[in-house]
Amino acid sequence: MVKQYKTIHEYGEDEVIIEKSRFIGYAKPVSTEEEAIEFINKIKKKHKDATHNVWAYTIGMNMGIQRYSDDGEPSGTAGIPTLEVIKKEDLRNVAVVVTRYFGGIKLGAGGLVRAYTKGAKIGLNAGKIINRILFKDVRFKIDYTLLGKVQNELLNLGYIIKEILYEDMVTIVVYSRIDEVENIKEKVIDFTNGKVEIEEKEEFYLSEYNGEIILD
């Protein structure tokens, strides 16, 4: 699993009028090509009366799958610019559709590129561009007398305490970034003078938006 990658947090939709043409940008996080195609087909069905439904998507941590369609616009003026926005933002597992209702004014090749670039950007921004960061569930079982000290130390260091389990001993469940796991283990051993049982559980991704971790 990669330590970190960029994608979008949720479905996004926004629109802009350019030279009387209406451009609606749609974006969605997807994990498979089937999901991307399903999303594209859903938007195309919703806007079957539109002049064009241009789309693009990337799938995979190395962007191994990249697809796009001009949907009748001049070659190179719509699908590729839409895909380029995704790639420039370095986004993984994202599908974008830009729907156009023609307003009567021709934009020319350069104008189309700018318009579809704008349409893709507003859709992606509406979906909230995030970092997906690899975390690990790390559990520290300690004596009740140590709880206050360890809890305060962890919070002061900025670690995420997901929950505290009160049993025969107390277990502090911490969500740690994967590359900080060894560091946090050393610190808790130090805080408790070694009077701690440590258990490492599953790895998973959490979203970071504007520097804040979103707890799913």
Rank of each mutant, 00 (worst) to 15 (best):
E153W: 04
F39A: 12
I178F: 12
Q66D: 04
R139E: 13
A120V: 00
I17D: 11
E212F: 10
F39V: 11
N93I: 08
V196M: 09
T117P: 02
E202Q: 13
V113R: 01
V173M: 05
N156T: 12
E84T: 14
K88T: 13
G25M: 02
F140P: 06
V94Y: 00
K6N: 12
L83I: 09
M169Y: 15
E73D: 07
K149N: 15
I161L: 08
I161H: 03
L112S: 03
F135L: 08
G64K: 02
I161N: 04
I18F: 03
S21Y: 02
I129R: 00
V181E: 12
H9E: 07
G64P: 00
I86C: 04
S207H: 05
K46L: 15
S75H: 13
I65D: 01
I80Y: 09
V188G: 03
I130N: 01
N53A: 12
V113E: 01
V113H: 03
K195D: 14
Y11F: 15
F140H: 07
I43C: 08
S207R: 02
M63E: 11
K46T: 14
N41V: 04
A126Y: 03
V181M: 09
Y11W: 09
A56P: 02
I198R: 08
R22D: 08
Y101M: 12
S207T: 10
E208V: 08
R114G: 03
A36Y: 02
G194C: 04
A50L: 09
